[in-house]
Simulated assay, not measured.
Amino acid sequence: MTTRSSLVRRACQDYRQYLRVILEPAMRDLLIEAKARRATLHHVFGANLFIAHAVDYVYAIRNAYGITENRRDFVREFDGLFSVGGSRLGDRKFELIDAINNALKHIRLDPKRYRDVEGRYGPISFQSLFEQDGRVLCLLDGYRFDYVSAVLAPAGRALTDWDFEDDAQIRRFARGDGDFVVDYYGAEDALMESNEPADAIDQMIAACNPRCSHCGEGEEDCVCAEYVFAGEQGEFEPRFRADFDFDAVMSRISGAYSPRN
């Protein structure tokens, strides 16, 4: 008889392999093409499919662990459970990913089955995505945005931004009870943690040039203002580091600096 522990172990191993050989390389290739403004529909639909099916692998782990839930409810709650960044689409990115994937499979969504999703975005079909100037945009009722930067990139990071050491970590991730928070600063962390005076100017430059909270680009490269979300024009919204100590850095830049009162 197959025990629960063996089912969980097998589900974790399946997910680990899926990440390694399918999702991680697919997302890596997609982001390279998107950054170079060479994104195409087949790149995006492929990555969208792989992310949508990654949800099924996580769902399988939860089922093996004995968590009883409806897949549709799980997809709807996925953003909140798994630290999906960006707030342009609230906590509904995986729901949209799942809908786009099923629209590709079925040409158009069944309006009865996807009443909530289409009530939010209007009718969804595979034609909701289209290429324009090296980007793949998503056009829905009241929405027009870069599908990679607004949806796939943050969703992909929420799934692949971890170096799982063992099955125990994967189980914690799948249950949503671990401290798995996407690090949006990444390469800046080592620099910003330094107390060396030689790094102070670079720290100040980094702190004064934040990236957009939604697309991850700097202000000069952010194109959120070209897009529409829920009927409102987007804009550059800087993500400032809450841990930046202005006075400490200024003191390392200049010994004559006097901290503010």
Rank of each mutant, 00 (worst) to 15 (best):
93 K>H: 00
183 D>H: 04
208 C>V: 01
46 G>C: 04
138 C>P: 14
15 Y>T: 02
241 R>I: 01
254 S>M: 11
36 A>R: 14
150 A>Q: 14
58 V>T: 04
109 L>H: 14
165 E>L: 11
169 Q>F: 06
23 L>S: 07
34 A>Q: 13
238 P>L: 08
33 E>C: 04
90 G>N: 09
25 P>I: 10
203 Q>C: 12
186 G>N: 03
84 V>R: 07
202 D>V: 00
175 R>I: 01
253 I>K: 15
17 Q>S: 08
185 Y>M: 04
136 V>A: 02
22 I>T: 08
139 L>Y: 10
256 A>V: 05
187 A>K: 05
208 C>D: 06
125 S>D: 09
25 P>K: 14
138 C>W: 15
216 G>E: 05
15 Y>M: 08
242 A>R: 14
168 A>M: 09
229 F>S: 03
257 Y>M: 08
187 A>G: 00
29 D>E: 15
92 R>E: 02
193 E>T: 07
232 E>T: 05
177 D>P: 00
25 P>E: 09
261 N>W: 10
3 T>V: 06
196 E>K: 15
249 V>H: 10
69 E>G: 13
153 A>H: 09
36 A>Q: 09
151 V>H: 13
154 P>K: 11
164 F>M: 09
30 L>K: 15
125 S>F: 06
132 Q>A: 15
10 R>H: 09
208 C>S: 10
124 I>D: 02
61 I>D: 00
251 S>H: 12
112 K>N: 07
